[in-house]
């Protein structure tokens, strides 16, 4: 008579199952975490670039609307950007940049996620100056571009 249950113990089987499951799950988590981290960095870069370009487009549209003669009495464009990119809050900084043409104002839009060292920069050229000479910083989220007739400038503020 051949016994097929030799060396088979319920306790050993159970322990083996637990051990194998643990090893497999740990391997999967470690393997996937590096993949997710890499993907998260890529997503952060792409999202900040997209937000920067959309803000640049909004500034150009506001500049075009403000270019009428006479100047507009009231102009405000609101954009709803995500409050977080890849799970992290971010800051938007607008800094005037030196340009070669006096009638064109160049502005550098810099997006910095709080929990990441990724930085996205976008350049935009407008006929009006954007913000004060020292630059403007706003938090990511709902942003409003306003034309200020008193200073003849475009201002960027949080809503």
């Amino acid at each position: 008579m051949i016994r097929t249950d030799r060396g088979v113990s319920t306790g050993v089987s159970y322990a083996l199952v637990i051990a194998i499951s643990l090893v497999l799950t740990t391997g999967l988590v470690f393997g996937a975490s590096s993949l997710v981290e890499q993907n998260q960095r890529s997503v952060t870069n792409q999202q900040t670039q997209v937000v920067g370009q959309q803000l640049a487009a909004t500034l150009v549209h506001a500049d075009r609307l403000a270019a009428t003669e006479p100047e507009p009495r009231n102009l405000a464009i609101t954009r709803r950007f995500p409050t977080r990119v890849a799970g992290s809050q971010y800051r938007i900084t607008l800094t005037p940049a030196p340009g070669t043409v006096p009638t064109i104002n160049r502005t550098v839009i810099t997006l910095r996620p709080v929990a990441s060292d990724a930085v996205a920069r976008t350049n935009v050229s407008t006929s009006l100056q954007v913000g004060p000479a020292g630059g403007t910083t706003v938090l990511g989220g709902d942003v409003r571009v306003i034309y200020d007739p008193a200073t003849d400038r475009l201002e960027v503020r949080n809503v």
């Binding site: 996937a32 993907n39 999202q47 997209v50 909004t58 464009i77 954009r79 709803r80 950007f81 890849a86």
Partner: peptide
């Protein structure tokens, strides 16, 4: 992983001429 990737597409598609002015 897939959800994190598709979030970029959502941001890129958010907005249009009416929003921009």
């Amino acid at each position: 992983v897939i959800n994190a990737s598709t979030q970029t597409t959502t941001v890129a598609g958010n907005g249009g001429a009416s929003v921009n002015g």
